[in-house]
Amino acid sequence: MNQMKIESLQPRLRLFIPLVLFTLIAVFLFRALSLNPASIPSAMIGRSLPEFELPVLENERLTNNADLFGRSILINVWATWCAACVIEHPFLMRLADSGIPIYGVNYKDQVVGARKWLSDYGDPYVSNIIDQHGKLGFDLGVYGAPETFFVDANGIIQYRHVGIINEDIWTSKLANLFNGLEEGVK
């Protein structure tokens, strides 16, 4: 009597194999639902700003990567053709007002249009680098706009945010990252 119970247990347990498999696959796929396939980790994290020598939008004087060293900054890649940049712009104005230095990379854009944009909407940037042919963008691994790079005082890229920066994501995540830049250097 006892022995029969044990023998019958094994095939009964085997009946649960499909259920276990299903559960495993379901958990795996459910996790994938919350992953964002568009967020590709930047290859530039932990590396120095690429070298460049490009004119600035304000007066077309040449600037280079070393000019940006010395303090933690944001480098915001934008363009007048970029629809999302219009949405992001007011929040950048607020960040600039709160004292965060933001440098702009005017990415594959026209100088005249870019100047008009800044005079129309306001200028949150310390300075704007003109990257008309996208060479700096390529060296940064930019694949769209807006993208924002978090660069520490030594000119090392510590983080890259793809897409719009808004109040939510700034307070929940990015503000900490930016404050962390300062600590990392000290």
Partner: peptide, 8 residues
């Protein structure tokens, strides 16, 4: 290419 855009 992958230096800038990653192995991706």
């Amino acid at each position: 290419m992958s230096l800038r855009y990653g192995e991706f």
